[in-house]
Simulated scan of single mutants.
Amino acid sequence: MDRILYGDNQFFGINHASEEKARQQLMKFQDIRVIADTLHDAYDAGVRGFACTTHERIIELVKIIKSEPERWEGLRFYPGMPYAHKYANAVTELGYFGALKQLLPSGGIVDAMMRGGKALVSGDVAKVATLLIDAEMKAFKGLDTPVIFLQNIVTDLILGLGYYEAFAIFEEHVRTRYNAEAGFFSMNLPMLLPALDSVGLKNPIVCANVNKSAFRMSGGIEAYREITAKYPARVIAMSVLASGAISPSEAIEWVVNEPYVESILFGASSRRNIESTVELIRKFDARKAVPA
């Protein structure tokens, strides 16, 4: 797994600290070519891991990247699914079965479910889930996708429902069909790790908020340290700057030294900020590697 991952939040005007900055980012990235060039700024800085949603704009971006393979050699995708707004909009417009029919290939299980009027309450749940994964992954065919993530909206819903076997279904499908590892975004790392362990998922890949001010860290810093000591995991730290509450140098120095953090995911909308963040991670990684 890549040590440094570049994310896509800024491309869609997502900023947890400033609505004005989010609006500015949304305006800046209206042109898909601006998105492609900014991603390439990260590529030029040496970042080869791109953690992305399956938003329609990312599908456009993937088409551009596929058409320019020499420009993107070695780029690895870490797709996260589902992109919830896409499904919510489809359900609002078409209803549940109409949405499934639109989002999944015709024939087979969906048509059978519609004919029988069956609700998603049986073994069909697993079948529909894996078909939805396949529908989301279609755009990434032919690209390097070492880790496929379940987005936190679904991960944490499964936690709340207690249907932990769903995690095993997801892991098995991405492993057997895509030769990839399963990853899980979550806002509740202390609850997730025991749940994954209970269905046989050891040393999982989990992306969660990790930052010095404990911003959006469920249970706080000590809870993270305690649970990862008991249930080892490969944690990808996101929101390391706590949405701007911590200076980049202080934030990255701290997160690099958290023993359970394997990778760092960041987003930035300018070449200068991308390069600065990458340089800081490498600087503090190098210091950490030198014996005291």
Rank of each mutant, 00 (worst) to 15 (best):
F50D: 01
F185Y: 05
S122F: 14
K202F: 04
P204H: 02
R282P: 06
F140G: 01
G219I: 06
G107F: 01
Q24H: 14
E19L: 13
Y78I: 06
Y83T: 14
N203D: 04
A223I: 14
L75Y: 00
E93L: 12
Y83E: 06
A112R: 10
D37V: 03
N273S: 00
S18E: 02
N179W: 14
E56M: 12
T155Q: 01
F29R: 03
A112S: 08
I221A: 08
F170E: 09
P204L: 13
A168W: 04
E171N: 08
V154L: 14
E279F: 12
E73T: 14
G49K: 01
A36H: 01
G95E: 00
L159G: 02
Q10V: 04
N273K: 00
I246S: 05
V278N: 06
M217Q: 06
G46Q: 07
R175S: 13
V210H: 03
I32A: 02
G107V: 03
Y96A: 06
E181T: 09
E226L: 15
R271G: 11
D37G: 11
S213F: 13
S263Q: 12
I252E: 12
S269D: 08
E253R: 11
I221Q: 09
L132S: 12
D156Y: 03
L196R: 02
S247R: 03
E60S: 07
D37C: 14
I221P: 04
I153D: 09
L104W: 00
A289G: 12
Y164S: 03
N9V: 07
V235Q: 11
E275V: 12
I153H: 05
K230M: 08
A292D: 11
L143K: 15
G46P: 07
Q10F: 05
A237E: 00
S198N: 05
P79L: 15
E136H: 11
A229I: 12
L159W: 00
I227V: 08
F266M: 00
A51F: 08
R234M: 15
E258Q: 15
P69V: 01
E70D: 10
S247W: 06
I32Q: 10
E275C: 11
R272S: 13
R272D: 14
K141W: 11
E279S: 15
R177C: 12
R216A: 07
D37M: 15
F167N: 04
D144N: 11
H85K: 11
D37F: 07
A289D: 12
A168G: 03
I58G: 09
N203A: 05
I227Y: 10
K283T: 12
W72Q: 01
A229S: 09
D37E: 07
I158L: 13
A286Y: 09
S198A: 13
G108M: 09
